[in-house]
Amino acid sequence: MKRAHLFAAAVLAALLAGTAHAGDTLAKAAAAGKVVFAYRESSVPFSYLAGVDQPVGFSVDLSKAILAEVKKQTGKPGLEVGWQAVTSANRIPLLVNGTIDLECGSTTNNSARAKEVDFAINHFYTGTRLLVKKSAGIKDWADLKGRKVAITTGTTNMQVVRRYNDDKGLGIEIVSTKDHADAALLVEAGRADAFAMDDILLFGLKANAKDPAALEVVGESLQVEPYACMVRKDDPKFKALVDGVITGLMKSGEFARLYDKWFLQPIPPKNQAIGLPMSKELQDNIKSPSDKPAT
Score class of each variant (00 low, 15 high):
Pro45Met: 02
Val60Ser: 04
Met1Ser: 14
Asn285Leu: 06
Asp211Met: 07
Asp211Val: 13
Phe203Thr: 07
Asp260Met: 00
Gly105Pro: 02
Asn122Arg: 01
Val132Ile: 15
Val81Ala: 11
Glu80Trp: 01
Gly23Val: 07
Ala294Tyr: 10
Arg3Cys: 08
Glu225Ala: 13
Lys115Glu: 15
Ser290Asn: 08
Val231Pro: 03
Gln159Ile: 14
Asp211Asn: 15
Thr99Ser: 12
Glu225Gln: 14
Leu62Trp: 08
Arg129Thr: 15
Val242Gln: 01
Gln73Gly: 03
Lys206Glu: 08
Asp260Thr: 11
Ser176Thr: 08
Lys233Thr: 02
Val224Met: 14
Val56Thr: 12
Lys71Phe: 00
Met250His: 04
Ile200Pro: 00
Leu15Lys: 03
Gln283Asn: 05
Asp235Trp: 05
Asp235Ala: 07
Phe7Asn: 05
Ala184Val: 04
Gly204Lys: 01
Gly51Leu: 09
Leu222Lys: 06
Gln54Ala: 13
Ala31Gln: 11
Arg163Val: 11
Thr126Pro: 06
Val132Glu: 08
Lys34Glu: 15
Ile151Thr: 03
Ala65Val: 07
Gln73His: 05
Thr19Glu: 15
Ser106Tyr: 15
Thr156Ile: 07
Arg163Ser: 15
Ile92Thr: 12
Val70Thr: 02
Leu264Asp: 01
Gly253Gln: 07
Leu258Ile: 06
Val81Cys: 06
Ala31Ile: 10
Leu79Asn: 04
Lys76Pro: 07
Met230His: 01
Gly105Gln: 01
Tyr164Val: 12
Gly18Trp: 10
Pro212Ile: 05
